[in-house]
């Protein structure tokens, strides 16, 4: 056999390298996302909500939502108060707009931190197995046996209510999902031959988890994050509804709902606006998440 031969193993007919032009990964994902109508609607709504959060001070003054004015009690819609006033005479629009800040900040931060925390634990449990898995999963069982709400109440009661405490409490209530989800995904993946192949290539466990296992479970993680953002928005409303959230005058969607409930017969619209805000946020995040999952899965390409 000829050694040092330079003959290419497979040559093209004219001996040239075939040129494959492919759009970049990000462009490709964006292109597919743009084709998905639902995702675009979700994205649009979400951008609107984020803009409201950013420019809240320009839309409505914060004071109008906090300061109680007796003569404005249950005032109907008017040019000064586009969405009317609540039973304490506070402007509903400014409460709604500034409430978005508190509600969304806490929900998004809690879903990101619960995702990071839960995924890490789940990946470790699934990948290493054995005693480590046992330890993590049994601890998780204990966590899950305590009702979420009760658990959050205990944490908030112990550490007193503030935004960081709320985020921690909600993270602890929600990270369990991710642990189980990622662990089961990882258990499926560790036996795959490409994981063994990566190990045969000298990759360390951390590297295998980060570059092989996480990308493969990203689809389910992503959908769960978006589902969680929406359920956390609702959960946070629940917390403020039962008075566990930020202290009284601070505007929040959930506490708006709970105080409007008293006057539901006299001013039904007071319930509608915060409820609508919660639903719209949850809905848009869900739509976008679904679209993103489809767009990011390379197996659905072409």
């Amino acid at each position: 056999m000829a050694k040092n031969s330079t003959r290419p193993v497979v040559a093209t007919l004219d001996g040239e390298d075939i040129n494959f032009k492919r759009p970049s990964q990000t462009k490709e994902i964006l292109r597919r996302l743009r084709k998905n109508k639902g995702a675009m609607i979700g994205l649009f709504l979400l951008i609107c909500i984020v803009l409201v959060v950013i420019f809240a001070d320009f839309i409505a003054p914060y004071e109008a939502g906090v300061v109680q004015v007796a003569e404005n009690k249950l005032a109907p819609m008017s040019p000064e108060h586009p969405l009317g006033c609540d039973s304490y005479g506070r402007d509903v629009l400014s409460r709604l707009v500034h409430g978005a800040r508190n509600s969304l900040l806490v929900a998004v931060a809690a879903s990101i931190s619960s995702c990071l925390f839960g995924c890490t634990l789940g990946a470790i449990a699934g990948y290493f197995g054995g005693k480590i898995d046992m330890l993590i999963m049994r601890a998780l069982d204990i966590f899950m046996s305590i009702p979420d709400l009760l658990f959050t109440m205990v944490v908030v009661a112990a550490l007193s209510s503030s935004i960081p405490v709320l985020i921690i409490a909600m993270t602890l209530a929600y990270f369990t999902n991710y642990v189980r989800l990622v662990r089961s995904g990882v258990l499926n993946l560790v036996d795959q031959e490409y994981v063994e192949a990566a190990r045969a290539g000298g990759s360390s466990s951390a590297r295998i988890i980060i570059s092989h296992i996480i990308p493969n479970t990203l689809g389910i993680i992503l959908v769960n994050v978006t589902l969680n953002v929406s359920s956390l928005v609702i959960y946070q409303s629940t917390l403020s509804f039962i008075g566990l959230s930020l202290p009284a005058p601070a505007p929040e969607w959930g506490s708006m709902l709970s105080s409007a409930r008293v006057d539901m017969m006299r001013a039904p619209l007071l319930v509608v606006f915060p409820a609508l805000a919660i639903v719209l946020t949850a809905f848009s995040v869900n739509l976008l998440g679904d679209g993103l999952r489809d767009a990011m899965d390379p197996r659905l390409k072409n």
Partner: peptide, 19 residues
């Protein structure tokens, strides 16, 4: 592993990471 001793796996359908 990978540097001094490398391995070609049996089944190319499963030994590449799809993502």
């Amino acid at each position: 592993r990978g540097d001094k001793i490398a391995m070609i796996f049996q089944d190319p359908m499963t030994s590449l990471n799809p993502v």
